[in-house]
Design a protein around this nucleic acid. Structure first.
Lengths: 211, 211
DNA sequence: ATTCGTTTTTATGTATACATATTGATTTGT
DNA sequence: ACAAATCAATATGTATACATAAAAACGAAT
């Protein structure tokens, strides 16, 4: 035991990846026996993995107490994304107060060295702010919310118009607020940034809900 | 199975209560076999309960991968309490925007009907704001953080001076901001309220850390 | 034909036996 | 006497068998 890679960890990571990637879709059933057979192990570690996914909000209990990939209502998603935005805003405010000069320079460089790969730059920017907030509890919270929301963020890049260009502008504005140590401004800008970033998803979800 | 009270739920609740109440103190060891024997069940449900407590942050892994009641550094506690304050502040802002007239009246009455039991009034006030925020994700987050921080909040009532009176004043100020629908003001006041509410704990912790 | 009751199926919950790793003690060699 | 290696003790990790509840399938009665 205490193996370098425990079976439970392995199956947990595998299932988590499938859910996040969309290979497993909301509503899909996950039975302990089936997964155990697929991965060539007993139900015990599978059981542990499913319970962890449950507490992480990636799966839920269906009829017969069976596990199914979590189905979220539009209201649930609105809550989740709103929370994500609020936590990001907190990070931005704390980062504006606490980032060291070195961290500020690094943050500036992330946007300056924009090589066109928006997703990469975006991830780096948000990561830098998360670390700059210097609060491990919030950082863990943010990681968790990001993972939980990933399954519904795929389609966010069929965004309309020049969403990426707009997002770059918003990043620059946040950067300026952080450099100016204006926490409240950074937080407000970040809330708006997250809201517009996720508006495409919301529209998509609302459209599906009406269908 | 799927019993109205599963063994795992029972032992989870029991251990959780002991940790929160301080019967089990940080650093105390929790062995699967020992607990199983005490509760008259097998290791399996105990194991599930311990893993849940782990994911909830109430216990951690010690040497030999044994479970021990979580020991938090001063920095960890600072992060945790800061996060708690930030989330409460979010609730206050959202509640200021979203509470219905009925909810505002109820909130007003909670402070008006103050019968002297500060803890009760305090709990009701924060609960009302949490519900008024109308975001289940944030509400769940807040519940979680409250549970995680409970073990270190006992001593918060050996607060110095007229902490309770000051707290009442802060509550009234927050109420006014909420009634005025001034979200940013409510959030700022709430952050300050949480910070001063928890300052006694911080002082105590710092004193212990120096000892 | 429909509805209520029974049966069967199938999922998770629990108990127990065994595997394995880590810690600490013991022993042996220099 | 000290150090390194080995062995024993004890914890969690895993496999498997059985218990049990809940939903679906089936059948009989009205």
């Amino acid at each position: 035991m205490a193996n370098s890679e425990r079976s439970a960890d392995h199956v947990h990571a595998a299932l988590s990846e499938r859910i996040v990637a969309g290979t497993l879709r909301p509503g899909d059933a996950l039975t302990e026996s089936g997964i155990a057979e697929e991965f060539g192990m007993s139900r015990t570690p599978v059981r542990e993995a499913l319970h962890r996914l449950d507490s992480e909000g990636l799966v839920e209990r269906g009829p017969r107490r069976a596990f199914v990939v979590r189905r979220m209502s539009v209201a649930d998603l609105r809550d989740l994304f709103e929370t994500l935005g609020e936590i990001e805003a907190i990070c931005a405010r704390l980062a504006a107060h606490r980032m060291t000069e070195i961290e500020r320079d690094a943050l500036t460089r992330i946007l300056a060295d924009d090589n066109g790969h928006y997703a990469t730059v975006n991830a780096r920017f948000h990561d830098a702010l998360r670390r700059g907030a210097q609060n491990r509890t919030i950082a863990a919270l943010l990681d968790d919310l990001n993972r939980r929301s990933l399954p519904w963020r795929e389609a966010s890049f069929r965004g309309s118009g020049d969403r990426i260009g707009q997002s770059r502008d918003e990043h620059r504005a946040i950067l300026q607020a952080v450099l100016a140590r204006d926490g409240d401004c950074a937080a407000t800008l970040m809330r708006a940034h997250m809201a517009s970033s996720l508006s495409a998803i919301s529209e998509m979800l609302l459209a599906e809900a009406h269908a």
